[in-house]
């Protein structure tokens, strides 16, 4: 007897793209998308975490590949990182005098928020053409929070609140931080939605060559923990669930720093290459009879 789940649409299998955290490296998703567009394959669901959420959102709004490249370059450039948040730094050094609180970040986030507004305006999740989920972390409980309602600017700003870099961001009555603190490559969100095939693009954080300040040390330790969390979560989801998960992990021979936006073209190319390698397998999965999937 064939067990066909009721949610499966008749026309075929649903495909999700999950873009994990990885700052500038997340632009590799645009390379992946280029390959899918050329092959005429559509994405039915987008999930993004941290840097990955920016790319997932532009894709979900239905922009074409070139437009996405242009918009995301506008979002993420040297300008957004050049202004240090002096108040935060002073508060850290002299907590009592300057009334330190948990909304701490080393970099002034005004430029980033402005950029997000200029690209996404007042658009909400309801305006997306493809369903979109954005993953953030509840700052107080440490648990994963999946956002699928409200203004895109808020969800994205929350998801990219890299610890120590950008301050947490309030959404409704919760204070949120970077999704990578709970789930750096959230394949489980796509699994729960019931899609049949998941493309999971993830990135390991790279470590700085040397550590010269306490905030860099903190950042280094966070990168180690993000990587260990990525591996542990992926191992679990891969083992526990039976959706087809195709991991696409681009390789970068050149170092790509956290704000190395000049590497965009190189990163996109590597994403393209990584997707090309998996394309025959994806095509095979898409072509297979639904009835073969129990």
């Amino acid at each position: 007897m064939l067990a066909i789940k009721p949610y499966r649409p008749l026309e075929g299998k649903r495909l999700a793209l999950v873009i994990g955290s990885g700052a500038v490296k997340c632009a590799a998703a645009l390379g992946l998308w280029k390959v899918l567009s050329q092959a005429g394959i559509e994405i039915d669901l987008l999930v993004g975490c941290s840097g990955g959420s920016l790319f997932a959102a532009t894709m979900a709004l239905g922009m074409d590949v070139d437009e996405c490249i242009e918009k995301t370059q506008r979002l993420w450039n040297r300008k957004v990182t050049e202004k240090r948040d002096m108040t935060s730094l002073l508060r850290a050094a002299l907590p009592r005098v300057f009334n330190f609180n948990e909304r701490f970040g080393m970099i002034d986030d005004q430029a980033m928020v402005q950029n997000l507004r200029s690209v996404f305006g007042e658009q909400t999740f309801e305006d997306t053409r493809t369903p979109l989920y954005v993953v953030a972390t509840d700052f107080h409980s440490g648990e994963q929070l999946v956002l699928s309602k409200g203004r895109l600017v808020d969800a994205l700003r929350a998801s990219i609140s890299i610890p120590f870099i950008w301050p947490p961001w309030p959404v409704d009555d919760r204070l949120l931080i970077d999704g990578s603190a709970s789930n750096p490559m959230p394949v489980d969100v796509a699994i729960k939605d019931g899609v049949e095939i998941i493309l999971a693009m993830g990135f390991e954080s790279s470590y700085p060559r040397s550590v010269s300040s306490i905030s860099r040390f903190a950042f280094h330790v966070n990168s180690i923990m993000t990587n260990n969390l990525l591996k542990a979560n992926f191992a679990f989801h891969n083992l526990a669930h039976h959706a087809e998960i195709i991991a696409i992990i681009p390789e970068f021979e050149q170092p790509v720093g956290l704000f190395d936006t000049s590497k965009f073209p190189y990163v996109i190319e590597q994403g393209e290459r990584a997707m090309q390698e998996q394309l025959p397998y994806l095509n095979r999965l898409l072509a297979a009879e639904s009835s073969q999937v129990k």
Binding site: P95, E102, A181, S182, N222, M225, T226, L229, F236
Partner: peptide, 22 residues
């Protein structure tokens, strides 16, 4: 959280708890 150290400790706790669960 009233200090940089408290925030740092808090981030560590969040990560470690999530790694523990995973």
């Amino acid at each position: 959280m009233h200090s940089y150290a408290a925030v740092t400790g808090h981030f560590n706790s969040i990560y470690m708890n999530n790694i523990l669960k995973a």
